[in-house]
């Protein structure tokens, strides 16, 4: 971030944008929701586990949507589950991000031909990052979370919050909930 350190009569101070300060804070406390639907959830679990240790980057899991910033679609999404996921998404507070983890959440993957599986999370949610793999390794998931961090860094969040712009990628589906 661009900031200037200036010397004043009573000590030094920093000149910079409020947005940058907010983003610095937001970026380093990226909490994801503990929520998995299928096989990818096993890798999601390992990501929080001892070896990958996502805690290092300020990413910790939360069990409730009200406290989390990122929804990770970890696994196959069925039509029966889709309305529940949308409900969880609506319950999260802005700003919020969505990661589609694994080929199932990207496009339906192996189960694209199946009658019960939604062919991609982006059909009913605005997805920010797609992670390929079946399942992606925990390293890739961390990379995906870091991409979200990069996105946060560049966001003019204050302006966005004031103008209250809708996410243009958000598919509006009536009757889902």
């Amino acid at each position: 971030m661009d900031a200037m350190v200036e010397q004043g009569p009573e000590g030094s101070f920093v000149l910079g944008k409020v947005d940058d300060l907010l983003n610095l804070a937001r970026k380093n406390s990226l909490w994801y929701m503990l929520f998995g639907t299928a096989c990818c959830a096993i890798e999601l679990m390992q990501t929080g586990g001892p070896r990958s240790d996502a805690d290092r980057f300020g990413m910790v899991f939360r069990a409730t949507p009200r406290q989390s910033d990122t929804l990770i679609l970890a696994g196959t999404i069925t039509y029966k589950m889709a309305s529940r996921i949308r409900l969880l998404y609506e319950q999260m507070a802005e700003p919020k991000y969505v990661i589609a983890m694994g080929s199932c959440a990207n496009t339906g993957g192996l189960f694209q031909e199946s009658y019960a599986v939604v062919n991609g999370g982006d059909l009913f949610l605005p997805v920010d990052v797609y992670i390929p793999g079946c399942p992606p390794r925990s390293e890739s998931l961390i990379e995906g979370l870091m991409l979200i961090q990069q996105k946060i860094e560049k966001e003019p969040w204050l302006k966005k919050a004031w103008t209250n712009t809708k996410n243009p990628k958000d598919p509006q589906i009536e009757g889902l909930l």
């Binding site: 889709a82 694209q112 939604v118 059909l123 009913f124 009757g175």
Partner: peptide
């Protein structure tokens, strides 16, 4: 479609 979600991509 099922509840507005298209069943093909």
């Amino acid at each position: 479609t099922y509840r507005g979600i298209p069943t093909t991509r």
